[in-house]
Every structure is written in structure tokens, then in C-alpha cells.
């Protein structure tokens, strides 16, 4: 399954499923990354991690660790 990490910069995709549990998963969902939400990957930080995405009309930064727990269509 493709995760948010595999999405190229500039591409828009839809969230299929969230892996993991507990605080990290809840935090990701609280920030609006829920099933079916459209996400655009904007850029990667200069040192290669974290990444910047656009979700629900605002900019969010998440680490690649967390992005790998977000499966996309």
C-alpha cells in the first residue's frame, strides 16, 4: 500500500487509512488528516525530514515517521 511518504512533491492524494494507534494517531486525526481527506505534499525540509503538506486549507509539517503511517489511495 502506498503511504504519504511515497507521494511526490506537488501531488495531491486522498487518505485511505491511518495505521498505528494512541497519541500519535489521534494527534494526526485531530489535525484533520482523516479518512477521505485530500492532501497535497508541498515540500521536504532542507535536511530531508520532515515534510510539509496542505490539508483542509492550511499548512502542516509532519515527520516521515508519521507520514509512513498514513496510507493513501
Amino acid at each position: 500500500m502506498k503511504t504519504l511518504n511515497d507521494v511526490k512533491i506537488g501531488e495531491t492524494t486522498k487518505i485511505a487509512r491511518l495505521l498505528g494507534e494512541g497519541a500519535v494517531k489521534r494527534r494526526i486525526m485531530d489535525m484533520g488528516l482523516t479518512k477521505g481527506t485530500e492532501v497535497t505534499v508541498r515540500k521536504v525540509a532542507p535536511l530531508g525530514d520532515p515534510i510539509e503538506i496542505t490539508v483542509r486549507g492550511y499548512e502542516l509539517s509532519i515527520r516521515k515517521d508519521e507520514a509512513s503511517k498514513i496510507e493513501v489511495a
Partner: peptide, 12 residues
């Protein structure tokens, strides 16, 4: 303990 998630808003 568990690592804290680094999910951070980048405000305009």
C-alpha cells in the same frame, strides 16, 4: 517513554 509526535502547524 513514547516519542512525541511532531505534527506541527505552519501558520501563515
Amino acid at each position: 517513554g513514547e516519542a512525541a509526535p511532531f505534527v506541527m502547524e505552519l501558520p501563515a
